[in-house]
Design a protein around this nucleic acid. Structure first.
Length: 278
DNA sequence: AGGACGCCCTGTTCGC
DNA sequence: TGCGAACAGGGCGTCC
């Protein structure tokens, strides 16, 4: 599922294949994927315009739209959210490049919005399960604010993060996944960072000691950064990472005991009862 | 207000 | 064997 590292990988993909391109046509194959935007709004805002820069906060990606010509200026932003199954692809001259979650064998699967560039390139937004969204906003900061996003998990400093976390009551894992506390941590990487700290996901925030708080911050950054560094190819992550065996009947990569599965904060949670005792 | 929970959506897996 | 139920989960709305 696209969490912060995957969306950062998508952002870099967009930088590589979509930036500085002039959009000739936009094709909306599934209008339902649009949020607060109609197909004609989208066409009017983007066709004949240039994509000029990207921004990411948490799992949200923005692409700047500029007019073309001598007095080029920013006319708005495209926003993309990838839900559970979203990803990007690019095709040109019969060659298709699918990134991260995409299935290279099915490059046309679940294309919801297609951008055709003047140079013949095609940039596609895919979303199988329709939890993702694409739309327009005039103001990037206002967009992030409207989504009630906390600071980005990769750039937040230790003190403000831990201060905000300590204000919360309740269980540790649901707090980490609350996008208004810190933006970008989803179910898989929340499980991972807690596993790396040896912390049980049901631990109460109020009961953590300073060393444990410290570890939550350190591992949050470390896990996310390492994943970004391998372009979200999880196969390249360290062998002692939980996500390799994070499935039914999976075993702990360290203790080799069976993993426990529990619904915590409404989400399926995997952990090792030996390495992460309550 | 903060926390718990149900729902949206579709492809895949599971169980009777 | 076949078909329906259950499941996956980010974000949002609703309830207390």
């Amino acid at each position: 599922m696209p969490e912060l590292p995957e969306v950062e990988t998508f952002r870099r993909f967009a930088d590589r294949y979509a930036l500085n391109q002039v959009v000739q046509t936009v094709e909306v194959l599934t209008p339902k994927i649009l949020e607060n935007t109609t197909e004609s709004d989208l066409k009017q805002a983007v066709e004949g315009h240039r994509l000029t820069q990207t921004q990411r906060v948490g799992k949200h990606l923005l692409v700047e739209i500029q007019s073309v010509g001598q007095k080029a200026q920013t006319t708005g932003w495209l926003f993309l959210h990838f839900g559970m199954t979203g990803y990007l692809s690019y095709a040109k001259n019969g060659k298709s490049i699918v990134n991260a979650y995409g299935d290279p064998a099915r490059p046309e699967a679940h294309v919801r919005v297609r951008f055709a560039f003047e140079d013949g390139g095609q940039f596609n937004f895919h979303e199988q399960r329709m939890f993702g969204k694409l739309g327009l906003t005039l103001d990037a900061d206002a967009y992030f604010k409207s989504k009630k996003l906390g600071p980005d998990a990769l750039s937040v400093a230790k003190k403000p993060f831990l201060d905000a976390l300590k204000k919360r009551k309740g269980q540790l894992k649901p707090a980490l996944m609350d996008q208004s506390l810190v933006a970008g941590v989803g179910n898989v990487y929340a499980d991972e960072l807690l596993y790396q700290c040896g912390l049980n996901p049901e631990r109460k925030i109020a009961d953590l000691n300073p060393k444990e708080f410290e570890c939550v911050y350190t591992q949050m950054i470390d896990v996310l950064q390492r994943t970004v560094d391998v372009d979200s190819d999880r196969d390249q992550l360290p062998a002692h990472y939980l996500l390799h065996t994070r499935k039914p009947k999976g075993k702990c990569p360290k203790a080799h005991h069976p993993l426990e599965i529990k619904t915590i904060g409404g989400r399926t949670t995997y952990f090792c009862p030996t390495c992460q005792p309550l």
